[in-house]
Amino acid sequence: MASIGDYGLNPARVRHRVADVPRSRGAVNGLLVFLLGIWGAVIPFIGPYLNLAYEPDTPWTMTADRLWLNVLPGVAALLGGLGLVASASRGGGVVWGWLAAVGGGWFVLGPTVSALWNGGTGDVVGDNAGVRVAAQLVFHYGLGVLILFLAAVALGRFTVADREAVIDESEYDDRTEILRDEAQVDDETRRRTDRT
């Protein structure tokens, strides 16, 4: 079985060229996910100042709901965003992208799943339907969908092949074809010499 080195390519160079990506690949999405993660982790504590809050409507009070439904998914998104900004390899970008996606998914699913342990997220403070909808979007659903979308775009960007890697692969195919042609010529020459 032939190896990459048999075709005149340096295996270490090929491996690094395929695995390495420019740091700018996930920078914008990572920065946005990072900022949204901070927002998601902090909004339950500053929401009462903005007249957007779930019960209790006291600022800077830690509750189990705030921890499980806002702080932890916010930290997951925050770390995923930082990792996307700093990642210089496909594998790292995919791992950090998935962490951000899990954080965004928990923002969306957490309020529904929380009914299993305490009857739900609690009531939104405010008697206006618009305030209740805005609080649900800002705290959970809209925020989670936005983080999930940005993480999915980053995952796509990290998994797509670079144009340079595709060009190198086509050069590899060309070299393989040339070597096959040379091998066929050698075989024909050997057959002719064996006949005579």
Results as ranks from 00 to 15, higher is better:
109 L>S: 02
149 F>N: 05
130 G>D: 05
149 F>Y: 12
67 L>F: 12
60 W>A: 12
177 E>V: 13
86 A>L: 15
1 M>K: 14
175 R>Y: 07
111 P>T: 04
36 L>N: 08
94 V>D: 00
170 S>D: 13
73 P>Q: 06
112 T>E: 13
114 S>T: 14
25 R>K: 11
133 V>H: 09
84 L>H: 02
32 L>P: 03
68 W>E: 07
169 E>S: 12
184 Q>N: 13
14 V>C: 03
122 G>N: 07
133 V>D: 05
117 W>N: 11
10 N>E: 15
57 D>Y: 09
158 F>V: 07
101 A>C: 03
161 A>F: 08
6 D>F: 07
97 G>R: 06
185 V>K: 14
74 G>R: 01
193 T>H: 13
99 L>C: 07
195 R>V: 11
8 G>T: 07
62 M>R: 09
76 A>T: 02
66 R>P: 04
94 V>L: 09
55 E>Q: 08
40 G>V: 04
147 I>H: 04
70 N>Q: 14
25 R>V: 11
22 P>M: 05
45 F>H: 14
96 W>M: 11
177 E>Y: 11
46 I>S: 09
158 F>T: 01
171 E>Q: 13
144 G>I: 02
110 G>C: 06
159 T>L: 03
10 N>L: 13
143 L>Y: 02
15 R>Y: 13
51 N>A: 15
86 A>N: 10
43 I>R: 00
143 L>N: 02
180 R>C: 09
76 A>Y: 02
132 R>W: 01
57 D>V: 04
30 G>N: 05
5 G>N: 12
170 S>Q: 11
86 A>V: 14
166 V>C: 00
33 V>S: 01
196 T>Q: 06
110 G>Y: 00
120 G>I: 09
75 V>W: 14
38 I>Y: 01
170 S>W: 07
122 G>D: 04
31 L>K: 09
125 V>C: 12
30 G>K: 08
54 Y>H: 06
194 D>E: 13
131 V>G: 01
159 T>G: 09
155 L>F: 08
150 L>G: 05
169 E>F: 08
128 N>V: 15
173 D>N: 06
13 R>F: 11
144 G>Y: 02
80 G>M: 04
126 G>H: 04
172 Y>S: 09
140 H>S: 08
89 S>L: 10
33 V>R: 04
174 D>E: 10
9 L>H: 12
192 R>H: 11
94 V>A: 04
166 V>D: 00
162 D>F: 06
91 G>S: 12
68 W>M: 13
98 W>M: 13
184 Q>K: 15
46 I>D: 02
177 E>C: 11
162 D>G: 15
160 V>W: 06
4 I>G: 06
25 R>Q: 04
59 P>L: 10
38 I>C: 08
21 V>I: 05
177 E>L: 15
157 R>M: 11
66 R>G: 10
125 V>F: 10
62 M>V: 03
41 A>Q: 02
105 G>A: 10
105 G>W: 01
160 V>K: 10
128 N>I: 14
47 G>P: 01
110 G>M: 04
135 A>Q: 08
127 D>V: 15
